[in-house]
Design a binder for these strands. Structure first.
Lengths: 207, 207
DNA sequence: CATTTATTGAACTCATTGGTTCAAGATAAG
DNA sequence: CTTATCTTGAACCAATGAGTTCAATAAATG
């Protein structure tokens, strides 16, 4: 066993989860370690048993959340590996899935945290590089490259196509969701997905 | 005179500027009123002479910055009111101007602040609604509507066209600039502008 | 059961910081 | 000059919160 303690079950995960929850809703500075301990169902010294610092606690919590978020996103690209006859429909499905993930309140909170603390925690930048949107871009570009090879996509630059596809989908979110504060309805997400794919198709797809 | 004091020249502006500078680089919670006073070249009690609270100080500083930012952006759209024969070139010029504004470090700081404190200051939402990207979208849509009427743009929905134009331009920034931490070179901005306008033109412009 | 280890609650230390007070000075208006 | 207003530095108060200490306890191991 890597980290199951003898005294009791491992509380590390509970601490990380609770930490992210509290950080997400309070911000780093405003979040008290006491609150985090309470949220995790744990005593304050226990937190310091597992994490040396409030700062490292923050880093680990954010990293775990970022990894989970990226995994979800990449998984949502799966349909593109084997789209049916109707490529636009497949793209639209993926777009909608990404939109749902991107408007999830937990993910919005993660982005808020990254934005706000990236100046105080320079090493958070590593997390962004490692598990950020770049990775999603690459994964999408891989799928698009296959489609291009199959003659269904008119491009020699799948990276650019992927970048613009994501931009068309996720770009409108910032304004429409009021910087992540307003929850968008499913119908609005569907509209964004449809119009984005429409434009993307006109520019990139073979007719 | 609205606010020129008798004792000395008006220090209100200096306080607001200093406040934004310090907030931008420290975040709300970490910024000390003492630091702000120092940055503004003023004593701490003087700050409280002009602003009742640290909170209201923050609100005013952020609002001033947001207004200035929006003004710059809208001004950058001017060339679209009278584009020459080469509409794509005009679009590309505007795109590049917007990209420069959007990667300005002061504007990145403003966005960071908004993102991080929008949960603690619900009334900041009003600032976003009033001077946020929506406004820019509308202003751009106005220009595009004129172009559509002139038959140079193939759309009955200028709002959508504007939204996608901005998305294609600004969307790639988040990933490329590493959430605003990396300063992009002029050449890279130009590339983004060129490719974005290329795609936009294929989807929306009359040939 | 005995031992080892982790957890717990509570109290404590210490540094930070928002906000205030006050007496002393500086400045403009009359 | 006189007066009213603003500024200033410094000290001060009160609250908050990070991180620690410690004795008591609970659980797993042998």
């Amino acid at each position: 066993m890597s980290s199951t303690t003898r005294g009791r079950i491992d509380k590390r995960q509970a601490i990380l989860d609770g930490a992210f929850t509290v950080f997400a809703k309070q911000g780093y500075a405003q979040a008290g370690v006491q609150d985090i301990a309470l949220e995790a169902g744990v005593a304050k010294p226990t937190v310091y048993n597992h994490m040396t610092d409030k700062a490292t606690l923050f880093r680990h919590a954010v990293e775990a959340a970022a990894i989970a978020a990226l995994d979800q996103r990449v998984a949502a690209l799966a349909p593109l590996s084997d789209p049916g006859d109707d490529l636009p429909a497949a793209l639209e499905g993926v777009a909608l899935a990404l939109l749902r993930l991107h408007t999830d309140s937990r993910y919005c909170a993660l982005r808020r945290l990254l934005y706000s603390e990236i100046t105080h925690f320079p090493d958070i930048l590593d997390i962004v590089k490692e598990y950020g949107l770049d990775r999603l871009n690459h994964a999408l570009a891989d799928r698009l490259a296959r489609l291009a090879l199959a003659g269904r996509l008119r491009t020699t630059d799948p990276d650019l196509a992927a970048e613009q596809f994501l931009a068309l989908i996720l770009g409108p979110l910032e304004a429409r969701s009021q910087m992540g504060t307003r929850q968008l309805e499913e119908a609005e997400l569907a509209t964004i997905a449809r119009t984005a794919v429409e434009t993307f198709a006109r520019a990139w797809l073979t007719t």
